[in-house]
Design a protein around this nucleic acid. Structure first.
Length: 445
RNA sequence: CGGGCUAUGGCGCAGCCUGGUAGCGCGUCCGUCUGGGGGACGGAAGGCCGUGAGUUCGAAUCUCGCUGGCCCGACCA
């Protein structure tokens, strides 16, 4: 993409409405525009990152054996009356009437609807286990939306639901989700720590929240510092292997890590004093095992091998997709702007033409731009008639992890510069070498 | 939902207290010079001062209502 033909409305100054760094940078980098309290348009750059994050979530869910579908944003109230939550959910649920005066709602979550789909089409244990998920916009009418996409009213969320015959199988589904979520966050350059949590309005027996440590986090968290040393890394996972999933789950949840809702001061005291930490965290996902809470109230049953009929075992699992963009920025920025991890960056590399209008540099830039595109890399070529400083400032702000800088000085000796946004380190390469180098970097992502 | 603050050109702000017909920086557009970290000079466009009512000869400015937005708290993926 040539920047002169793109739509990137960057702001030089901080909008007064934005208080935290991710919100400020998303507005300044032209990623989002607020349309109402807690409701945003996703401008091209923001939309690109949102799609990359969404794609990683899809890939890791499918890898874990979970099946995508898509349910509507608007739901009939009757389903929620069946589960009893129409009255329980409170004013956070946006209630709407259609032209026939029927009660509708903009879904804050989908347990009822997925249970309805399940009971309509599944009646035998032979169809189990089954895990269905979708990535869809949700609406929760928060009293006080704030912090940009971190706490909007409308938000994009991946929510998944597992259906199993036995408690043991359902707990395996729980573990599968825990493992797949850890992989998902790591691919986005985030460390999200599973913490024992409170089940809230979903209800259930077992639940973990995934928290990214950040000063601007809304939750207070307490943990053993040793949990921050554990990584999924490149280990191979067989999602059908119950013992392996169980052991990964245990590895990541054995040490003390809790939010203030479930914090137990006495237990925390048992963590060696030098490893005790309290901090703030951003919640980017939560998994629940809740057994037969919905299947009983809504009549989702299956026939067992011995011919009896039992309510199905369930769990639900969510990742805050749009919120993740805020969390990624909170965890990856400096005073000049965003620093995208390679896995989610809107463009793989930015090209800065230092002397726009100079025949030699223009030609060199066009050539390397075309070479990058031909190599399958997504490049943003800043071909505006701006001075070098303005171009650097824009590139730093929008946070592309790699920048190729091309000017007459380097070209006179046949080189361009490749610069890391994160380290600031520049290395000189020939144009062809720079393309190869970038292909190597992105081969891992 | 309680408490506080705020609304002036695309963005950030001044003007309001002490009413007299709106200004600054950035951005945008045109031109010239410039060309390795938001450059210089010259020119230009862009605002019924959130909205409704009231006070007044006259309201961005004073009064009241309404609606946005922000902060603290309670709530929350």
């Amino acid at each position: 993409m040539r920047l002169s033909r793109y739509f990137l409305p960057v702001l030089k100054e901080n909008p007064s409405e934005a208080q935290i760094v991710s919100h400020r940078y998303m507005l300044r980098a032209g990623m989002i525009k607020q349309q109402a309290a807690g409701i945003y348009s996703w401008l091209p750059l923001g939309f690109k990152v949102l799609k990359r994050v969404e794609e990683i979530v899809h890939q890791e869910q499918i890898r874990a054996g979970h099946i995508p579908l898509l349910m509507p944003t608007l739901q009939p109230a009757d389903l929620w009356r069946e589960s009893g939550r129409y009255d329980d959910y409170g004013q956070e649920m946006l209630r709407i009437k259609d032209r026939h005066d029927r009660d509708m709602l903009f879904g804050p979550t989908n347990e009822e609807m997925i249970t309805d789909i399940f009971r309509s089409h599944v009646s035998s244990y032979k169809n189990l286990p089954l895990t269905l998920y979708h990535i869809q916009w949700k609406f929760r009418d928060e009293v006080r939306p704030r912090f940009g996409v971190m706490r909007g009213r409308e938000f994009l969320m991946k929510d998944g639901y597992n259906f199993d015959l036995t408690r043991e199988d359902a707990l395996h589904a729980y573990n599968r989700h825990l493992v797949s979520y850890l992989r998902t966050y790591e691919r986005m350059g985030l460390q999200a720590i599973p913490m024992r949590a409170d089940s809230g309005p979903i209800g259930g027996d077992d639940t973990h929240e995934f928290l990214v440590l950040a000063e601007t986090g809304e939750s207070e968290v307490f943990y053993d510092a040793a949990v921050t040393d554990i990584r999924m890394g490149a280990r191979e996972i067989n999602y059908d292997d119950k013992a392996q999933c169980q052991s990964v789950m245990e590895e990541f949840t054995a040490l003390y890590a809790r939010t203030d809702e479930t914090h137990d001061a006495a237990l925390f005291e048992q963590v060696p004093a030098e490893r005790r930490r309290s901090a703030r965290g951003i919640e980017v996902g939560q998994i629940f095992y809740f057994g037969t809470k919905y299947s009983e109230s809504m009549g989702a049953t299956v026939v067992t091998p011995d011919g009896s009929r039992v309510p199905v075992e369930m769990g639900s699992h969510g990742i805050g997709v749009s919120r993740l963009l805020g969390a990624i920025i909170e965890a990856n920025h400096d005073d000049k702007g965003i620093i995208w991890p390679e896995g989610v960056t809107p463009f793989h590399v930015g090209i800065v033409n230092l002397k726009q209008g100079d025949a030699g540099t223009d030609a060199a830039c066009t050539e390397i731009y075309q070479a990058l595109v031909a190599a399958g890399l997504d490049a943003l070529y800043d071909d505006r008639d701006e001075r070098a400083g303005a171009k650097f400032a824009t590139m730093d702000l929008i946070g592309l992890p790699w920048r190729i800088t091309i000017g007459p000085r380097g070209l006179s000796s046949g080189v361009v510069e490749l610069t890391s946004r994160r380290t600031g380190v520049s290395t000189e390469f020939t144009a062809a070498e720079a393309v190869v180098k970038l292909l190597e970097i992105y081969a891992a992502h």
